[in-house]
Design a protein around this nucleic acid. Sequence first.
DNA 1: TTGATAGGCAAGTCGCGACTTGCCTATTGT
DNA 2: ACAATAGGCAAGTCGCGACTTGCCTATCAA
Lengths: 96, 96
Amino acid sequence: MDDVFKALADPTRRRILDELVERDGQTLFEICARLVTKHGLGLSRQAVSQHLAVLESAGLVVTRRQGRYKFHDLDTAPLERAMTRWLRPDTPESSP
Amino acid sequence: MDDVFKALADPTRRRILDELVERDGQTLFEICARLVTKHGLGLSRQAVSQHLAVLESAGLVVTRRQGRYKFHDLDTAPLERAMTRWLRPDTPESSP
DNA sequence: TTGATAGGCAAGTCGCGACTTGCCTATTGT
DNA sequence: ACAATAGGCAAGTCGCGACTTGCCTATCAA
């Protein structure tokens, strides 16, 4: 759970999550290309690879190998668990 | 919104939010004392003050001065807005 | 089998963020 | 008025994280 917040701290990693929400099951090179073209970010392949490793060890991204490809899928379950931490039970909108 | 994630990245700041959920409107010295006694954290007053400044500029904490006291209140609104960013609209549980 | 593609490992650079230290301002109580 | 309390400002130290560079492994197509 600590890793979830650390993973979300970096803006590039958040962009990666944005990409995976829009289209699940992308490879490292696909994500690389999208970050460069769509968001104008100039980073190396290694940088993206390391970001994906952080996201995966945080449980936010799940990978499946298939031949020489490694597909990345988003998992939002850790997000929801992390965020309900500070949501008070007595908010007036919670039970209308 | 970028500041929200950066603010949540530090474990000490998350502890401060925990404290404010439990009891709203604490002063700097109160928060300091609680972090030391209840959580065993050994940090200076300045450290906590800087953490509170980060939380405030992120909109997660709202302050009100009263004489020589400065009370700190939690605001969870930025949290909820930040989290809905990656929640897919087509989750099977969202519309049973 | 060879070259191209997809990815991994390891060491190194560098800047930002967390924390400290020292001193200063303002409000309160006696 | 004076001391104590509550907080702020600024410069400095230091470690961790983001990113690069160079090289290595594995799978697929020709």
